[in-house]
Structures are given as structure tokens and as C-alpha cells.
Amino acid sequence: MNTEFALEVSHLTKNYRDFSLNDVSFSLPTGCIMGFIGENGAGKTTTIRSILGMIQKKEGTINILGASQNECLPKINEHLGIVLNECTFPETLTTSDVSTIMKHIYKTWNNTSFSNYMDRFALPKKKKIKDFSTGMKTKLSIAAALSHDSRLLILDEATSGLDPIAREEILDVFLEFIQDENHSVFMSSHIVSDLEKICDYITFLHKGKILFSESKDVLLDSYGIYKCSKEEFDKLDASCVKAIRENKFGIEALVSYNQVKRQMSASSSSCMDRASIEEIMLMLVKGKQCTA
């Protein structure tokens, strides 16, 4: 099943009473990791639910691992590894129970693999899930998602409840997963620093709309945070400014790094730094948008 894109979402639209997803489109090339970011309430979970067929979409097409969602979804599910932001196993089960159950659900279930993850994550085999900590529950879900022939991992805020050390462990696991170039990862998170580390692509959802879906390197190369006075700001070419925030002592602007670097004079007190993904997100959400 060698397809160019592991996940393709086109013109996804879904309306609720007080919220809508509007014409959401993005594509995840096979072999890459895509980070899905957005503030709380932006619609990330709604998008993921639409992708997984949990809710009906009003419009749009979704292709998963090359197959249309409307068609053979159960068959494709054999190759999907899903981790949601809650532990989705009934609490009275133990990890051995989980293994017994999953063996009969997935044709490609690999018990050895699951066992290895249990050991690696230090998860006890006989304890009931209700006695697990949040971190342990997440690790269990991740282990289950990786213990059958998953080609696409979809994670919805899976690392949000973990401490930094556990998160690093998990990110390592994802990087290992990606070593096979037929494997891809789609993860939503609001811990942007995690995504910045390992993602190849970043898609930003804001109030139900996609603001950008771009290679991370391009984003980090293109944007800069320019801090200057009002007068210096006015001298700038309007086309290179994307958003601004004013404070009592000057202006902070999200700009095109290369364009502004050229226009900067050596003598001014203004300064320009490369923008991190988090800063880009903050500026686009909280700053005043500038459309040239």
C-alpha cells in the first residue's frame, strides 16, 4: 500500500450550533510527522473525529492511507494506530486483558511487541487500569497503537498529560516509528515545543479555519519577530508584515525574516529574531492580523 499521502483532508466542513469547521484542507506526505496545532476550541478534536469517522461531515473528502473514508474504513483501520486524549480501555481491565482482547481484534496484533512496550514503559501486567496514573494510561494506549501493523498514527492530545521526561520518551518512540518510511504520524497537541522538535510539517487551525499547513523548516526560515519603534515600523514594506502587537514601549511584528533583514539599518535599536512556531501561533492568534 504505497501511497504518496498518508492522510488527505479536502474541504472538510462541519457545522455545529456555535462552531464550524470551514473548508479545512491539508495533506500529510507518507513518511512524515505532521503536528496539528491550535488553541483550545479551535476544532482540532472535531477535525480528528471527522477523520476517524466518529462524526458525520457536512462536506469534504478524506483519504486515509490512499483509501477513501467512505469506502473500506474497517479494512484500513487494521493499519491505523489511534491514541485519544482519554484512556479508552474499560478501567477494570488489566494489561493482560487488553492483550487478550486486541489479539482477537487485529489480525496483525503482535504480542511480543506489546510485551516489549510494557517493559519499556514499565507498565505492570496484572494491575487494573483504574489504578494507573494518567501517564501510564497514555503509554498503554500508545503501546496498543504500535503493536499491530500501524502505518498511520493519529494522536489527539496524547502527550498533554505527561511530564517532560515521559514526553521525551514518547517522542523518541515516534521517531523510531518513522524510521520505516511507510509510516506516518499525525499528532495534535498544544505543547508546541514538542511538535517543533520532531515534526516535519505543521498545520495550524484557528477558529475552524486552517491558517497554514507548511513544512516546519520553511516556517522557521521564513518568519521573524521584529521589535522596533512605531516610526521604524511605518518605514517597513507592508507586504512583509503578517501580524503586530503593540505595547507601551514599541511594536512587535511577525514579519518575513529575509525581507525585513535587508531593510533593517545597522544603526537602529530595533532587533530581529527568528520566530519559533509558538511565537508564530501567538502572533497570529493574539496579534492584529495584517493583510497586504
Binding site: G31, C32, I33, L171, D172, L175, E176, I178, Q179, K197, I198, C199, D200, S215, K216, D217
Partner: peptide, 9 residues
Amino acid sequence: AKELKISVI
């Protein structure tokens, strides 16, 4: 990419 923890791209 994995060892340096950076993007494959």
C-alpha cells in the same frame, strides 16, 4: 533525524 531529534526533511 531521529538521533539529532530534528525533522527528516
